[in-house]
Design a protein around this nucleic acid. Structure first.
Lengths: 187, 187
DNA sequence: TACGTCATGTAATCGGTTACATGATTGC
DNA sequence: GCAATCATGTAACCGATTACATGACGTA
């Protein structure tokens, strides 16, 4: 039994939205799925070719006004069936997410408390920027697509991103405090 | 400028604890770092060889009572310097963590609400198992190593794992509720 | 003698990124 | 003429996993 290739279904799924070209898929993922997915052209174009080979999609070249030609990919009935089958399959296990900040923290007894705190503050700031981005995307989806069938699901994924980012930000604050208290009692 | 190889420093860092062999490093990561890191023998053994080549560690073969010989790796002064330099370097950006559950949810308008809920319940259950594991590891660290210098930092990383897992569990509950409410009002 | 644990290692493969190459179109 | 955006593609590389191979030692 071959392992799931989630990226294949990410692309297949996006063909069911308003994205029908490699360039459009890339943009969509970077803009609206970037809190839980990313992709490079090096994956997209060969995979689109593969989808056509597997008869999960069809292509045709379309001309546009004021823009270069593009290839329009349309999902087939077979493609929709494959997508639905994948949607129904539960993930087999939650993967381990490597976290370099935690890795550094794990070894931080080799470091001055100041340096460790600086790392955590830097991480916290990056998390806060990320949180702002999520709020902006959320507002955009909520306002521009309140009529679309997809939007409630898209907002659920954003809510996930926001909540976990918030939890991480709070952890940063509390951990910095604890390190400061520990340092005070060591003095 | 070459990109950081975090795995190299994960191994180097573990050489500063009680782990001094490839087998021991693998066990340690699987047991105490599995909430934010993982590694395979296919990385460990070649990397240990590399560390010796780069003079960041030394090896010697040691015999043991009732167990096969093993290779004991010891970090050098140069290795400790390299580790500290890495510890002081802030991460360049928070990487995108691919999440297949969110990817499926994103496309869930193609699915019956029942099926979507089943996916979320399955995810929630897996998260709860993970949470239990974290609590067990935390108890183990707290009881077995209250004297060790490393333990406060190790507990911080576990706290992070617990908090984010908890946030994800709560999100599952709330999202299931919202889907149920939406379905009721559609009827 | 067979199984479980401890222990070390490699080759093939895979998913994904990076760097590069090409070219149309619009607006400054 | 040049930069920005739109658009498609590939080859080299990289980090990591998987599958496989080997063998020591203790115990049932």
């Amino acid at each position: 039994m071959k392992k799931d290739n989630h990226t294949k279904y990410a692309i297949l799924g996006l063909l069911t939205t308003d994205c029908h070209s490699g360039y459009g898929i890339k943009q969509m993922i970077d803009q609206s799925l970037n809190h839980f997915w990313k992709i490079s052209y090096g994956q997209i174009y060969p995979m689109l070719k593969q989808l056509v080979t597997d008869e999960l999609a069809t292509v045709r070249t379309t001309t546009q006004d004021g823009k270069p030609d593009k290839k329009e990919y349309v999902i087939t009935a077979k493609g929709e069936a494959a997508l639905q089958e994948w949607l129904q399959t539960p993930i087999d296990a939650i993967p381990v997410e490597r976290n370099a900040v935690l890795l550094k923290l794990f070894f931080s007894r080799h470091q001055y408390a100041d340096t460790t705190i600086r790392q955590l503050e830097d991480y916290q700031q990056k998390l806060e920027e990320r949180y702002s981005t999520y709020k902006a995307i959320e507002a955009m989806i909520a306002s521009l697509m309140h009529n679309k069938q997809d939007s409630p699901y898209w907002l659920f994924t954003l809510d996930y991103g926001k909540r976990l980012t918030k939890a991480a930000i709070d952890w940063c604050s509390d951990t910095i405090d604890q390190i400061n208290n520990g340092r005070a009692s060591d003095g």
